[in-house]
Amino acid sequence: MDLSTWNLEQSLESFRARTAEAGSADEWEALRIEYLGKKNGMMTRLLTALREAPRELKPRLGKDLNVFKKEVERIIKERKPSDRAGKAPKLDLSLPGVAPDLGGLHPVTLTMQAMTDFFVRMGYDVAEGPEIETNFYNFEALNTPAAHPARDDADTYYIEDPSNDLLLRTQTSGTQIRYMQTHQPPFRMVAPGRVFRRDDDITHSPVFHQMEGLVVGEGITFSHLKGSLQAFAAHIFGEGTRIRLRPSYFPFTEPSAEVDVTCPFCESGCRTCKGTTWIEILGCGMVDPNVFEAVGYDPEKVTGFAWGIGIERVAMLKYSIPDIRYLYQNDRRFLDQFKVG
């Protein structure tokens, strides 16, 4: 090897030209051995020649040879196809990952939690009560005595018991009575829970869930009720949702109102809102003084509002569920759809 004619630029040029011809891993390997092979590679031979080069040229040549070696190594490393090419790769990156199954919550729970979370953020306490109730908590304390025709509407399930006093609660309002018996105003609370009515069709289930809200204190007004429900409706059904109150009747509130929300699906009438652009969503009112008297509050001193809403109805609207019975069939193909979101 004659180093006197060796030139870095030319050598690199010629190496690059050779790489252009190399394609397969084998060709590259051959190239690597030709240049970098330990025994008889070009680099080895150049370095051997360097030892015999004139002393004054050694520093420059040494430096250039080093640059040449580094560059050749770099190019081969970068461009030489991996040894594994054509063989099985170490990882099949497309395989599904090793993960636990995707579980999910029931849409009734999802809806209930979304609603509860909202009220908890508004400073409400959460309470629960028994589902087998007495006449007193389900009706009498709620201003609905035995002969009241409102009891016909309730379609109540009764329990076989000697006292003839037990029933499956038709509303979660009984929890409010229990709460008032054990707490003093001011307070704000919600009572989510399971209720029962003898009714079974595409919009009624014999078992369903309700959430009731109760706010009691000095100076609580109907306008506070309206504001609270407006905030709630916007939270659940989306920004821009408006509410409308219509006079109604509940034994335990006076005045009472039904609340409609603007249809979340349309602006000019659709099947869900029966062309009205409004959807009835809950009942509410100012707590009847008789209810306060039943729990020992002074209705001259405190006022309060209460509302009750069906969880399934909200879930059906929110998720476009066509038949309430879907919620209780627990068909996996239905439930699997709630694993997102």
Binding site: M122, D125, A127, P186, F187, K226, R244, L245
Partner: peptide, 22 residues
């Protein structure tokens, strides 16, 4: 009812201890 205002109630005391079961 359209005459009613739409306002939030003043923040009143509440039972802040969460029910451990729930």
């Amino acid at each position: 009812f359209a005459r009613l205002e739409s306002v939030l109630p003043p923040f009143g005391g509440s039972d802040f201890a969460a029910d451990p079961l729930l």
